[in-house]
Simulated assay, not measured.
Amino acid sequence: MLEDALSYPTKGDSGIVRLLIGGVLVFFSWLLVPVFLVSGYLVRAAAAVSRGDEDPPALDDWGGLLVDGVKATVIAVAYSLVPAVIFGGMLVVVVGGGSAGGNAGGLLAGVGLLGMLLALPAVLVVTYLLPAALINFAREESLGAAFAVSTLKPVLLSRQYIVATVIVFGVSVVGGAVLSFLSAFLVGIVIAPFYYFWLGLASQFMFGRAFAEVANTRESATPAAAPVADD
């Protein structure tokens, strides 16, 4: 899967042009609209892979990509609410404890800091859940599909998805280290937007392939309905 993922971003017609356009969009991400365009394209690519497409989809239909990107952002925000609420609540406790002073205030601040640390596992869980949720959203073209537990659960608990997550993490760490080294020579700064777009597509390929393997297994295991006999 890794070899296929690494070559996926440049496959198909105009693969290099696609990578260049994607890198330019990432470069201008501070304008926000390019962020939605890239997000919309990445979720479409992952959904296409989950349906068995070997090449990335065309980088066009800008209006549709923008809408998909906004919807993907809404889903990401919804998933992030739990860790955000935990972190924000504990931050209030820390500030309140510091303002109160004394032993009670110190104890309150300590409890708040501990709670903020507990928010980290929630962030990791959301990071793990989100790719599968976004793929199902794009596959079904429905916001509700991003929260369909019955569909997402077998994917999230599958060996394929866990392996994909580990590989994406490993590639991100290695690639990030190389990019940091190159940044010392300014080369990394120039290629960074294109690298992150390439990494996004490669990652989506791995998650999409894992989703497809689980989905195909479930479909093949579902017995076909018996034909109705004519009277």
Rank of each mutant, 00 (worst) to 15 (best):
Glu3His: 07
Asp4Arg: 15
Pro9Lys: 02
Gly15Val: 04
Arg18Ser: 10
Ile21Glu: 11
Val24Tyr: 11
Leu25Gly: 04
Phe28His: 09
Trp30Met: 09
Tyr41Arg: 03
Leu42Gln: 11
Val43Asp: 04
Ala47Ser: 12
Ala47Arg: 01
Ala48Thr: 02
Asp53Cys: 02
Asp60Ala: 15
Gly63Trp: 10
Leu66Tyr: 15
Val67Leu: 10
Val77Cys: 05
Gly88Asn: 04
Gly89Ile: 00
Gly89Met: 02
Met90Glu: 15
Leu91Tyr: 14
Val93Lys: 03
Val94Cys: 07
Gly96Trp: 10
Gly96Met: 13
Gly97Trp: 02
Ser99His: 05
Val111Ala: 14
Val111His: 04
Ala122Ser: 05
Ile135Asp: 05
Phe137Asn: 01
Ala138Arg: 12
Arg139Ser: 10
Glu141Pro: 00
Ala145Cys: 11
Ser150Tyr: 05
Thr151Pro: 03
Leu152His: 03
Tyr161Asp: 07
Ile162Tyr: 08
Ile167Lys: 13
Gly170Cys: 12
Val173Met: 08
Val174Glu: 07
Val174Ser: 05
Gly176His: 06
Gly176Gln: 00
Leu179Ile: 13
Val187Pro: 10
Ala192Phe: 13
Phe197Arg: 00
Ala202Arg: 00
Phe205Gly: 05
Phe205Arg: 04
Met206Gly: 06
Arg209His: 12
Glu213Gly: 09
Thr217Leu: 14
Ser220Val: 13
Thr222Trp: 07
Ala224Leu: 14
Ala225Lys: 13
